[in-house]
């Protein structure tokens, strides 16, 4: 058997002296029995569970967001004849965030959300381009030889997105913003992404 080291005996001596001092002051409390310990612990855990449960239920409420789904994703843009060849219509820019663009041979619905960081570009009729005021991204307007909405200047990494567009039975343009077509995925050749004009 190894002798206890001096540090240990000195430490325990100090501890005993401290306990004795506390007992003399009446501050050394050893009155908690097993029953009291369990009831205190149970109350503590119940409180903790209640608090945690409350937090969890608040968090759970986020799982079913109270969303206003807003208005329909589709809208009628009117007859194709009202759009001139090689023109950009800003009629639905504010209300639907869509430009109706008629190129030489087709009509497309272009989203007004810049593909860089989501500002709304301006249509510059004289320069025949969409120019974003936030970081200077530029996209081609309808002009011979290029597709409208293709990025060519500034930081935008990809062309503007297009929405599904079709003709209704009574010959009106119907734009469905629920479905989009991205050039970099090769989706602009999809016949749903344009209406032949």
């Amino acid at each position: 058997m190894a002798e206890p080291t001096t540090t240990d005996s000195a430490g325990s001596k100090v501890r005993e002296e401290a306990i004795a001092r506390l007992k003399a002051q009446g501050a050394w409390n050893t009155t908690m029995d097993r029953r009291r310990f369990f009831s205190t612990a149970a109350a503590g855990w119940a409180l903790f569970a209640a608090a945690f449960g409350g937090l969890a239920s608040v968090f759970g409420a986020f799982m079913a967001p109270r969303v206003d789904f807003g208005k329909a994703q589709t809208f009628r843009a009117g007859s194709p004849d009202k759009f001139q060849p090689n023109s950009v219509s800003e009629e639905f820019k504010i209300s639907e965030k869509v430009w109706i663009v008629r190129e030489a041979e087709k009509i497309v619905a272009i989203s007004t959300v810049c593909t860089h960081l989501g500002c709304t570009p301006n249509w510059m009729g004289d320069e025949k381009k969409f120019k974003c005021p936030c970081h200077g991204s530029g996209f081609y307007g309808p002009r011979p030889g290029v597709e409208a909405g293709v990025n060519f200047e500034g930081p935008a990494p990809r062309p503007l997105e297009r929405y599904k567009i079709s003709l209704t039975a009574d010959g009106q343009l119907l734009v469905d913003k629920g479905q989009k077509f991205q050039e970099e995925k090769g989706e602009w050749s999809n016949p749903e992404s344009f209406v032949a004009a």
């Binding site: 965030k97 860089h116 500002c119 709304t120 301006n122 930081p155």
Partner: peptide
């Protein structure tokens, strides 16, 4: 604010203008 009409030019708060300038040259 009107989501259909971004002010031109549209500037970040002054202390972020350096970052906005970087956004012109690099991928977001």
């Amino acid at each position: 604010a009107n989501p259909g009409n971004t002010p031109n030019p549209s500037k970040a708060p002054w202390y972020f203008l350096g970052l906005q300038e970087l956004l012109v040259y690099f991928d977001p």
